[in-house]
């Protein structure tokens, strides 16, 4: 159903992918230039950096979710009641849609990556299987974190119509803090400390580091503790707020 919807408006999807790819392309070009004439900077050499950007873009496409952007609006206008009365559980609907969206995006990301790979020829060495598995699990948890954050934004729709602004602010901060543009470890120590308390580094940066094998076993454990804590915190918060919101809904009688 979802794929069919996309194909009805193929240009929409093409544009979306085009924008994503342009972003990756500019980042890669930019960093290629930064490293022209030098062996290394910020503790990364050129190949490291290109691989890094490559991986984060890949991860972004996997973790990022725009599907639930309209949720707050649906909640606010009461559109969602239509789905609420259906016998399928809301949550199941979201998850299936999310999976359909992700698989579609993933398919194209792989195609695009092959092209970018050919242009920039990064030296990606597949890590040993256990490391790869750890990476995949971490990527999955990252996706879950963002999924819950998006649901939380949707929940705001119970109380206010003006959710676009706050979402925009979130994505802007995400742009600079998830590690999409540059590896976070080039930041000053203090900024880093603050940043690692937030969920942002766990949406792309940590995963790439896992992939590249930059973490020691204890650090891996730390990352996983952080990931799981965030999933639990956000999930808990969402379920509480959603229940509250539904009650409010009933009270207003929308």
């Amino acid at each position: 159903m979802y794929w069919q919807n996309l194909l009805t408006y193929p240009l929409n999807f093409v544009f979306w992918r085009l924008r994503q790819m342009l972003g990756t392309f500019t980042s890669l070009t930019f960093w290629s230039v930064v490293f022209v004439g030098t062996g290394s900077a910020f503790g990364y050499d050129r190949t490291d950096m290109i691989s890094y950007i490559f991986l984060t873009s890949f991860l972004q496409s996997f973790v990022l979710s725009t599907l639930l952007n309209g949720l707050a609006q649906d909640v606010y206008t009461g559109e969602i009641s239509n789905t609420l009365v259906k016998p399928i559980r809301m949550f199941g609907v979201w998850i299936t849609q999310e999976i359909a969206d992700k698989s579609m995006n993933l398919f194209f990301v792989i195609l695009e990556s092959l092209f970018l790979f050919w242009v920039f020829k990064p030296q990606l060495i597949l890590p040993p299987t256990p490391q790869l598995l750890v990476f995949l699990v971490a990527a999955f948890l990252g996706a879950v974190i963002l999924f819950y954050i998006m649901l939380l934004f949707g929940t705001l729709g119970f109380w206010t119509q003006e959710t676009w602004g706050i979402r925009f602010l979130f994505f802007m901060i995400l742009d600079f803090t998830a590690g999409k543009l540059y590896p976070l470890d080039i930041l000053p120590e203090l900024v880093k400390k603050v940043l690692f308390i937030t969920p942002f580094p766990y949406l792309a940066y940590s995963q790439t580091q896992l992939f590249l094998g930059k973490y020691s076993p204890t650090e891996v454990v730390h990352v996983f503790i952080a990931l799981i804590t965030w999933v639990l915190v956000l999930a808990g918060l969402f379920h509480i707020l959603w229940k509250r919101g539904l009650k409010e809904y009933g009270a207003v009688g929308r």
Binding site: T8, Y9, L11, N12, F15, W16, L18, R19
Partner: peptide
């Protein structure tokens, strides 16, 4: 027919 994010291009 419809382009949601044409303005973002």
């Amino acid at each position: 027919d419809r382009l949601d994010n044409i303005n973002e291009l």
